[in-house]
């Protein structure tokens, strides 16, 4: 960051980091307020919904809609009012003073008066040695991407939430059997998803159990299971391990600057999207560890755009001084 020259950097009013429902709703509102927001879309434009199949709980789509299709509609609506959607990832930030300094893809400097953080969350992994080694060779955190490579074989999925149920059901299209391994004896998933999974004859639940190791040299041959009640260890022969144990917020680049809880979620002032740094706002899954829905992300994205518009109107535009570090 220090050796990058900001004196000729592009300057902007609002930079939105992330392009899921939160970021694109913020972009829509900021664009309609004529703030000409720039959106850096990150490595997964569209966010987590890009890897989901049917979205059945976003109001206004009575027949459901595919996740990627919905995000294309979000993009089109934001662009219609002049939001500037760009490919690129913000790789570091300097929030010492306004205008704030951002670095895009480790090389391009950008100066911005306000920042809306909508970086969302990414899939968590189990943290096993074999897991990273066999990633792409049977280990996956995206059933909708990789499920089709495992036709007529047995697979295992770890998790007990809605995502785990949705992915388990998706995997039954290809796999001969889907084992759902869950740490507890009850599911976190919503009733409707539980009922669908329980009713599917290809799905078999393994309760009170953890995956403790991945077996396989060049590709997954199985997993080692441990029963949390009896302590019993057993092997399960499967060709794939899908991990669906939740998400962690993508907030690493803000660690030195913003107040976060112990899990890395950005803390916002109650009833607002204000962070501890004036002019920096946070919305969506990066700050919400409770609801984490597309519709709530969109809601807080709208709040962040309104907060930043009002804040800019009140505080005006800060001039860039090249002397500051």
């Amino acid at each position: 960051m220090n050796d990058l020259d900001f004196s000729n950097a592009e300057q902007t009013n609002v930079t939105i980091i992330g392009s899921g429902p939160a970021g694109l709703t913020a972009a829509l509102y900021a664009a309609r307020a004529n703030l000409k927001p720039i959106v850096y879309q990150g490595i997964q434009p569209g966010g987590q919904l890009i890897t989901t199949t049917d979205v059945e709980n976003f109001p206004g789509f009575p027949d459901g809609i595919m996740g990627p299709e919905m995000m294309q509609l979000f993009e089109a609506q934001a662009e219609r009012f002049g939001a500037d959607l760009r490919y690129g990832t913000v790789t570091s930030v300097d929030l010492t003073e306004r205008p704030f300094r951002l670095v895009i893809d480790e090389e391009t400097p950008l100066l911005t008066q306000t920042i809306i953080i909508s970086t969302g969350a990414s899939a968590k992994y189990l943290g096993l040695e074999g897991e990273q080694r066999l990633l792409g060779y049977g280990v996956s955190a995206c059933a909708t991407c990789d499920g089709a490579f495992f036709r007529d074989v047995e697979v295992v999925i770890v998790g007990g939430g809605d995502t785990a149920m949705e992915e388990a059901l998706f995997l039954t299209r290809f796999a001969s059997k889907v084992h759902v391994v869950h740490r507890r004896d009850t599911l976190r998933a919503s009733k409707i998803m539980q009922e669908r999974a329980m009713a599917n004859e290809k799905i078999e639940f393994v309760w009170n159990t953890e995956v403790v190791d991945v077996i396989g040299d060049k590709e997954v041959d199985g997993v080692k299971l441990k029963n949390r009640v009896t302590g019993e260890i057993s092997d399960l022969a499967v060709k794939a391990l899908f991990v669906a144990i939740g998400h962690r917020p993508n907030t690493d680049i803000f660690t030195d600057w913003l107040d976060m809880d112990d899990q890395g979620y950005i803390v916002t002032k109650p009833d607002t999207t204000y962070t501890n740094i004036p002019g920096v706002f946070a919305c969506g899954d990066a700050q919400d560890h409770v609801y984490r829905q597309a519709v709530t992300a969109a809601g807080t994205g709208c709040m962040a755009a309104i907060d930043s518009e009002r804040w800019l109107a009140e505080h005006g535009v800060a001039e860039f001084s090249s002397a500051a570090v």
Binding site: I43, Q44, P45, G46, I50, T51, T52, G67, Y87, C145
Partner: peptide, 17 residues
């Protein structure tokens, strides 16, 4: 890649560039 793969679509513009 495949048409039904979200992350594939995400990197498609990068591949074109």
């Amino acid at each position: 890649w495949a048409t039904w793969c979200g992350p594939c679509r995400a990197i498609a513009p990068v591949i074109e560039e």
